[in-house]
């Protein structure tokens, strides 16, 4: 059996994903031991896990450092990596939205100023509406932009909407639903086909059981 290299997104989502992999028979006791190790291996189940920044998972997979990984749909839409998107894991659900001040009215006479961490998604969304926009790329605290009149609207991930509400902002449009996806490198898929398709099937069964339970 060939070892599967798996890139896990650091954080709460990653912990849930790891639990799923373990339920799918790919346990790795070493990863729960703590310490400063970066890579965790279990030859018995044929896996090698490593934690990376969530937005980097797709890069590790696209370039083959990881055979498979778990990345948010937001990252996949934004960077369009050349990978296979095998499964919707149904975790980390949220929405990519356009949000603005509650009293915002769109004036098509003016160029719309859009603050976002996701310039590609924002540009594509407004291109579909044939709308000219001015992208303001920010790296965090996007919600503050419309309050300070830095932008007219924002394009960002909305989970519960609490942050928006507390700042007198509201969702104006939903661009797309987001969730965590199981992704695979295209070359690994070919050379480690059995390992990857088996694991995908087991993960899919876990997803189905979970939705049945609901």
């Amino acid at each position: 059996m060939q070892m599967l290299n798996i890139a896990l997104p650091k954080g709460r989502l990653g912990e849930k994903v790891l639990a799923m992999f373990e339920n799918a028979g790919r346990s790795c006791p070493a990863i729960h031991e703590g310490g400063r190790k970066l890579i965790f291996e279990n030859e018995a189940t044929g896996v090698r896990y490593f934690w990376v920044k969530p937005s980097d998972v797709a890069i590790y997979v696209e370039r083959g450092a990881a055979d498979i990984g778990v990345a948010g749909k937001d990252i996949l839409e934004e960077y369009s990596p050349d990978i296979y998107e095998l499964l919707d894991l149904g975790l980390g659900k949220c929405r990519m939205c356009v949000a603005g001040k509650k009293d915002f009215t769109d004036d098509r006479e003016k160029t719309l100023r859009v603050a976002t961490k996701f310039p590609h998604i924002a540009r594509a969304h407004y291109a579909r509406q044939s709308r000219q926009i001015d992208i303001i790329k920010l790296n965090g605290s996007i919600e503050i932009a419309p309050i300070l009149s830095l932008s007219d609207v924002i394009v960002d991930i909305v989970e519960t909407g609490t942050t928006l509400l507390e700042n007198d902002l509201t969702v104006l449009e939903t661009i797309l639903p987001i969730s965590a996806r199981l992704i695979a490198n295209k070359v690994s898929y070919l050379f480690k086909n059995k390992e990857i398709t088996d694991l995908t099937k087991q993960m899919e069964a876990l997803c189905e059981n979970r939705s049945d339970a609901k």
Partner: peptide, 9 residues
Amino acid sequence: GYINGVPQG
């Protein structure tokens, strides 16, 4: 065509 170990075609 793919070669095992080269992450692209």
